[in-house]
Design a protein around this nucleic acid. Structure first.
Lengths: 288, 288
DNA sequence: GTCAATATGAAATATTAATTCCAATCCGCA
DNA sequence: TGCGGATTGGAATTAATATTTCATATTGAC
């Protein structure tokens, strides 16, 4: 008691930046071994996030107890709570928008006005774009483009929430003068339409959970005819994945129960234009 | 050897991509609970990296022992070694989202392969979202929401490139149980459909340069019937603007001559959900 | 140089988490 | 419908990890 007052009053740093500032601030006044572990922590934050007290202590050349004393001097009640801050940092780097989204959600819920709803959808869209940009596999993309580029006719298959994407693809393919067929249900002739597809054609199928049964059924049926399928869906466990030659997993963030579709849209646009590009290349080669 | 040979021979996946591929490969043959945890793992890799066996099992709705069995079936000797793979993945992803975005913008501009096309569309979408987030006028948004919320039927009007947005709005309004009519051209009965609209209804009209003549014509005609119009368009000089009670100017960035539609989509989703919200509020007030 | 205060090392202990085990259940098959 | 193997749930066990304790060393003041 008594002397320790200064330490006890202090608030515990809850985010990495504050923690870092605190450490740098006190650096001069820290005892030797504590300073040693402090330096190590700032230099190797990932090790702190994942290591055990013993392993970190060993790497830093100190005793586990020193590590705990270090945490306690910063106001944490032990190594474990210090470690939380380092872990949080890694999570946030991956999805910096997630927190913002949660805040907006809260704001929208307790009557932050309608602007909050708009902000929420913008944030959800940004998050989704960030995710897909990280996770898209180049090789899969190339494969899909190659597969679609050599198709005689591209069939586009999607219902309900995914339908807007399909209609965009159909529009863009048309613009690029690529023969395509949007499988719509207006006249109930989908089965017949699908029947015309051959292995020389290709399909883009899009469906997200809860998967529209019609989309699944039609995809199965067209796959059985030997037509190669490119699927855009939300989980590798999607029923679409099993029928597809190539599939893309797109994780869309949601806001107020409505999922974004911007990542899917961006992927769809890219696929379409890349297919156009590839055909142009092929055309040039034939002529030249 | 014997029956166990197959499992024992297998190499243990040491990196995340291999692990992922392995899981997907065996998906079909996994028992129910194991499949459940497998899906959870691929959908929430960060949770696996940070959580404890107990916490993860709880989130995925299985027993801790199932989690361990899952790890063992993949050839790991326990949950801990499986977790290492998920942690490694996080360490590897170092660059932040913004850095990455800037990099891919540059790369897309000096034409790489097809991946560059994808990156270009992601960059265009992000830019558009940033722009609209800055430029959207709160008062206009509120006004549009109020106008649409009190409509008996919301007519949705858009062709060609804007049609996907319209179909999304129609879908979302339907989900929210808000009466709406998508003005489609299939049977050529648009004029008649529009004829039913009254000043107690409202319209969302969407069109971008080059404005589809049909959209302009239909908007004019419905405006003359005294039906209030909310327009989403790309310039205050747009022919739509003159007919509209409220209009939004949305500047979409383009890539390779193809404009993004993510900002328009975000606005459309926000409008739709805000209208739903406003109606709910109004409903509560009437009852209370 | 001696004393008190502080810091450190190393082992003991307490806590928490992973793993194993066994009974109950489910599922395919005759 | 009853049998046998596979799968699952949940408690018991074992392993690991964090924390505490205490003896020893270091530092700085007088």
């Amino acid at each position: 008691m008594g002397v320790g007052g200064a330490t006890m009053d202090e608030r515990v740093p809850r985010d990495f930046e504050t923690l870092r500032a605190t450490i740098l601030d006190r650096r001069a006044s820290l005892p030797k071994r504590i300073a040693q572990i402090a330096a190590y922590a700032l230099d190797n934050p990932d090790d702190i996030a994942f290591g055990t007290a013993a392993s970190i202590a060993a790497s830093a050349g100190v005793q586990p107890s020193t590590l705990i004393r270090f945490a306690q001097q910063l106001g944490f009640d032990g190594f474990t709570s210090l470690q939380q801050v380092f872990r949080e940092r890694l999570r946030e780097r991956n999805s910096s928008y997630d927190e913002r989204l949660a805040a907006l959600r809260a704001k929208a819920e307790d009557g932050g006005g309608h602007r909050a709803i708009f902000d929420g959808f913008v944030a959800a869209a940004s998050t989704s774009l960030g995710d897909i940009s990280r996770s898209l596999n180049d090789a899969h993309f190339e494969e899909a483009v190659a597969l679609l580029a050599k198709a005689e006719t591209i069939y586009v298959l999607a219902k309900r929430r995914s339908y807007p994407v399909a209609s965009y693809i159909a529009y863009a393919l048309g613009k690029l003068k690529i023969r395509n067929q949007l499988v719509e249900s207006a006249a109930g002739l989908n089965a017949e339409m699908i029947g015309f597809a051959t292995p020389r054609d290709a399909v883009i199928a899009i469906s997200f959970s809860p998967y529209a049964p019609a989309t699944i059924e039609e995809t199965r049926s067209i796959a059985e005819q030997g037509v190669p399928i490119v699927a855009i869906t939300d989980s590798s466990f999607s029923p679409l994945a099993q029928f597809a030659k190539v599939w893309f997993e797109v994780a869309e963030a949601d806001f107020g129960g409505f999922r974004s579709i911007s990542a899917t849209m961006a992927l769809a646009m890219a696929l379409t234009v890349a297919v156009g590009e590839k055909r142009r290349e092929a055309g040039r080669r034939r002529k030249g």
